[in-house]
Each structure stands twice: as structure tokens, then as C-alpha cells.
Design a protein around this nucleic acid. Structure first.
Lengths: 204, 204
DNA sequence: GTAGAAGCGGACCCGGAGTCCGCATTCTAA
DNA sequence: TTAGAATGCGGACTCCGGGTCCGCTTCTAC
């Protein structure tokens, strides 16, 4: 009845490939430098094996990405505060985005590889859909906050991998500073104190 | 002493290529479908000519992009309100981002091509640098707004081409609605009543 | 042990970016 | 106007990486 377990050499090779790819992406200058042949070679495996296990480049990247992100996803969906559902909405949004940022800081090259070359558009990946709808749901719990759908997109855009890479890598912004800036920014977006008169927008 | 004018066939061909590329990118499903050979053929020109004139794919995209964006850049740098320097900072930020969004809505495929395949990272392109520093400068004129550098990045990220494409193309969000949402979002970021700072913004 | 399913691997194919170089066009000077 | 040089033209060609194919090996169920 069980859906056919995979052969143990297949499982072993799959792990070998994941580990090898992980190492390669962590060390490389730019994700584009790593070819599928490189990964296969580093894993001590043929290209055929690699493609059989992951379909294509995007599939490999996705598998890596999701394996790494899994703990965070769980923590957000069912963990304790400040990430879990019990957290007050505002704090939770800040915490989630901070967790996402930290994740991208820790896995810069990998996430970069996925978001840029992984698929035509990162927005088509279904994991983006998950994060977005989750964030939108939380935003909707904040009164006086309209357009939660767009807001979720915009907030997620602030943690885009290539931006993070640019700031952390090129501009040498220290991680802690970046986290503080993001937190500050998110807080500002969510602040929306008592609906203040729009006249203020032109003043000053 | 004058820096050698280019031959007139060269100039003519350059224009032909730009026009052809423009048309192709406007009509295509995805920018990746358009090959350099396609562009050359459509322009009635050899590949050699194309590469001589624009160096590489990224160069062609950049040339197209900058030609299109030029009017907006001028309007922002030295035009009348609401884009020009005479505008009050808050309104100007909103206007500039709106202009950028409109531009991307009108030139979706082209901008998409540039931002995704154009160069390793859109943040390395020097035109990004220009927009960012311009926006930062305006943000700095708004009192009680800290982190203008990061804020500028985050706001620009909200108008990323692939996000715009996703919303306008996939999700069928009408342009007007998107503009309204962006304007609303930007306004919220800039609103920042007196910093009602929660202690938790700590870190750094 | 044996049959055959599942998996292996690397030679191979395909398509696109970018190069090269003999020929054509344009410019310059007399 | 014309000769010669400089610039530009174009498409065949190279290079390279993603992805496929298929004869062979290894595992597993019986």
C-alpha cells in the first residue's frame, strides 16, 4: 500500500547531491558559476542521476531552499511566540520578516541562486504564495490597515535576496544593522497610528 | 579633436536594432524567448553588427531601458512639480514612485528583461544607484524619518519589475488600483507620526 | 538464485551567446 | 573624382551549459 519507497542508493545519492550543492553554493562567487555538471561531479554522481532526482536546475534549487526553510516555516505556522500564531499581529509581522531576513543573510548565495536563476519569476514559485498569503492573513488582523495584499507583497519585496545580497555583500552593511533597519521600516509601515488626516502628507 | 563621429550606416543600424528590439520585447510572451539572433534578423542586420553596437545582451537591454526612461529622469531632476525638485518631499516621493510604477506598467516586458536577465544583479546597474541616491536625498528632507538609505531601497523594491508583472499580468490587478495601493503604501511609510517607538526596535 | 524494476552515468544533443575575418561601405585627402 | 584607409558588415563558427538517452549495474521481491 505504501507508495513505493525509493531504493537506498537513490536516497543516498540524493543526499550526496544536496550536500554537495549546498557546499558549492555556499562557497561560490556567484551562483551562475556553478553548473549542473559541477554539482554532479562534486557529489560523485553522473548528470543523469542528478536530473533524475531533481528534474532540472530549478528543482534542485527549490529542494535545497525548502529543506533549509522548513524549520522556519514550522515555527511560523505552529511554533511559540514571537513567530507562532499566538503572537499579536504587529509583533508577528516584524518577527516573521526578521526571520526571513536572517535566513537570507545566512543562506545568501543559495537564495540568490533560487530567486534569480531558479525560475522565470520568483513570484510563480508556490512557496512565495505561501509566505505571501500567510503574511496577508496576519496583516488583516491589524485594524486600520488596508490593502493587506499589496502590503504583504511590498514588505516581502524589502527582503528580496538580491537586495539583501547587495547590502550585505557589496555595501558591507552589518547584519545587525540591517535587521534593525528592516524592523524599523516594518514598524513604520504598521504604525499607522490613529487615522491621521491626510493633509499632513503635504505639510512639512 | 572631436571624438570620431560614427559612420552613418552604423547610426542607422543602431536605430534599426533599437526599434526592432523594442517591438520584439513588447510583443513577446517572455523576454527569454527573444534571442539576439531574433533581434538581429528583425532589424535586418547581422549578429556581428548587433554585438559591435551594444557589446552584449545586457548592453542592448540597458540602452533600450535608458532611452525609454530618460524623459522621466529629466522630469524628476529638473522638471516642474509634482516630479521636479520644487515639490515638497513627501509628495515628490509619492510622485516619483508612481512615475516609476507607471513606467514599468507601460514597459513591462522590457523592464522585466533587464531586471531579470540583464545583469547578475539589478542593484549593480548604475542607473539603480542613481534612482536610489536621488530618492534617498529626498527622503532625507523629511524630518523624523530615519534610515533613509534603507527606506529608499525598500520603497524601490516595492516597484520591482517582476512584482509589477506578477500583479498586473498574473493577478490581473488593474493599473489604477495598483497605483492607488502603492501611493497608499508609500504614504503610510512616510506618515510616521511622532516616533511612538516601541522598546523592541532595539538591536544594532 | 533469479527476474526485472529501479537507478546509474557519461556521451551526446540542442540552442543561444558571443567571436572572427573576408568583403563592402563610407570617409578623407589630394 | 578617385585611391586608399578606416570603419563597419554579416553570418558561419566556436564555446558552453542545460537537459536527454540508453546500455549497463545494482538493488529488491520472490
Amino acid at each position: 500500500m505504501s507508495e513505493r519507497r525509493s531504493r537506498k542508493d537513490a536516497a543516498r545519492n540524493r543526499e550526496a547531491v544536496l550536500a554537495a550543492a549546498d557546499a558549492l553554493f555556499a562557497r561560490c562567487e556567484s551562483p551562475a558559476d556553478i553548473t549542473m555538471a559541477d554539482v554532479a561531479a562534486a557529489a560523485g554522481v553522473g548528470k543523469g542521476t542528478l536530473f533524475r532526482a531533481f528534474d532540472d536546475r530549478a528543482g534542485l534549487l527549490r529542494a535545497l531552499y525548502e529543506a533549509r526553510l522548513e524549520p522556519i516555516r514550522e515555527a511560523v505556522e505552529a511554533g511559540p511566540p514571537p513567530l507562532g500564531p499566538a503572537t499579536p499581529p504587529r509583533d508577528r509581522v516584524v518577527a516573521v520578516l526578521d526571520a526571513l531576513l536572517c535566513f537570507k543573510l545566512d543562506n545568501r548565495r543559495l537564495v540568490l541562486a533560487l530567486e534569480e536563476g531558479g525560475s522565470p519569476s520568483p513570484y510563480r514559485a508556490e512557496h512565495y504564495e505561501r509566505w505571501h498569503s500567510m503574511l496577508r492573513a496576519v496583516l488583516e488582523q491589524i485594524p486600520a490597515l488596508t490593502d493587506s495584499d499589496f502590503t504583504a507583497h511590498a514588505l516581502l519585496a524589502a527582503t528580496r535576496a538580491d537586495l539583501v545580497e547587495h547590502l550585505a555583500g557589496e555595501k558591507r552593511v552589518p547584519p545587525e544593522r540591517m535587521r534593525a533597519q528592516l524592523a524599523n521600516y516594518v514598524a513604520r509601515v504598521l504604525a499607522s497610528g490613529p487615522p491621521q488626516d491626510p493633509a499632513r502628507l503635504s505639510a512639512e
